[in-house]
Design a protein around this nucleic acid. Structure first.
Lengths: 240, 240
DNA sequence: CGCAAGATTGAATAACCTCAACAGCTGTGG
DNA sequence: CCACAGCTGTTGAGGTTATTCAATCTTGCG
């Protein structure tokens, strides 16, 4: 690894470590795994799942670890994280209530899962999950649809990362967090999470948001509470 | 559309049309839909599919059109295309033999499908496809696995587009086209397709490939036939 | 040959990143 | 209560990467 890096530096492809890596902290993963009784959830999966809780910043699963469980988010927000060898990070998805993690995996998790807020998850042993699904056609159909929507979301994000400007990315991102019928946006994640999701730096995220505010397209109570005052402008920028 | 664009230009978020749009041609979609007898394909789907052929540059489906068919590639290479309103383009995936198109769709195709080379496809009416799948659990499992791998590929590409440099993107791309055990790469697509897949311009793609050649990491017979002479260097750059 | 399309190369520019400083908030301890 | 440290977010200056614009080269084809 270090030798490859050195070789590259002599041949014109060296790359400085991004500044964001210096300020980011990865808290240790002391999983509590508190198992709680969970009555009254509909569906055939309820018996074989456990309820588990994690605190803000806890690591639920690391990328590369054996994929033993499937998780379903009950409450809270999490991030699905991928890392390059030198620490550059991408967040493929923010997970909220109803989202699954660990379904479309091979033997190992291809991305990590980390709690952004305190959260509650249902955890299913993967082999039980699969056999149960095969027995229940309706649940299988539902899950198939879920994966399809997730693929569509990924492909949508590909276009954003491949072809949109920083301002367009932020506009798309903010609008995607709008609740139906409200102009209030609450962002549970910090700027570095947003930056790593949109393929930008925290500084660029901050500057674009400042510019939106100066244009009076948004107003802010604090860094995580945003009101969209000119949705048409943002929609024109997002353009999709 | 035009008004939104004008409004933006007065407010500091205007964006010039990318140069690549000027040189790119979108051939008319005169679909031939030649139906050909196709004997001897294994699986329960063979009866309800038609074999259709398309020539280089023909449009199979446009993004936004009603998703009536599922396609399976028999031979040739195609591209799954998404466009922004101003013409910026992204290619989410290059499809080759065995790949499906149209499975994970809602009512409409979310991306277009265009033939890069002359190609042969199996075409299935979508409703028949679904009902057949529900009747055949093994085929359903297989397709589920296929979608999962596709989602994994998309997420992998997200990291590439979000966090990798131009040289790293090209290295990853070239290596992904290596056939098992061979150092010869044959690229069926042109530079603008590569650029739109990797989120770059044709000029940048060209420059990086030139640099690889100058470093003697690759050699080229012509623009589409590349021999990898230093796979270790490319692998170190791709870093994944 | 002459033309068209794709590919390459060069020079100048723009967008975004890096580095650095600072502001605001929160929790801790005296 | 205040001082302080640590962390997140913001802002400014300057640098780097990839883009834009433009010219040239290559290849295939009538």
């Amino acid at each position: 690894m270090a030798t490859a890096q050195a070789a590259l530096q002599t041949e014109g492809f060296q790359r400085a470590l991004p500044a964001s890596l210096r300020t980011r902290s990865y808290p240790a993963a002391h999983s509590t795994d508190a198992v709680v009784a969970m009555p009254g959830i509909a569906g055939p999966l309820q018996q074989l799942g456990q309820t588990v809780r994690y605190q803000r910043s806890e690591v639920v699963e690391d990328a590369g670890d054996p994929a033993e469980y499937v998780y379903k988010v009950v409450s809270g927000t999490l991030r699905a994280v991928r890392l390059l060898a030198d620490g550059r990070r991408h967040i493929a998805k923010f997970l909220t209530a109803g989202d699954y993690f660990g379904i479309a995996e091979g033997d190992d998790y291809s991305s990590g899962l980390e709690a952004i807020t305190d959260c509650t998850l249902m955890r299913y042993p993967r082999y039980k999950f699969q056999t149960t699904l095969e027995a229940d056609a309706a649940a299988g159909r539902q899950l198939f649809g879920h994966i399809c929507r997730q693929l569509e979301a990924s492909n949508h994000l590909l276009l954003l990362l491949g072809r949109k400007t920083a301002a367009e990315r932020l506009a798309s991102f903010l609008l995607s967090f709008r609740q139906h019928g409200s102009s209030e946006i609450c962002l549970p994640m910090c700027r570095s999470d947003i930056a790593d999701h949109l393929g930008l730096t925290i500084e660029t995220v901050s500057r674009v948001i400042t510019k939106f505010r100066q244009q009076r397209w948004i107003s802010m109570q604090d860094a995580s509470h945003i009101r969209v005052t000119a949705p048409d402008k943002l929609e024109a920028l997002a353009a999709n």
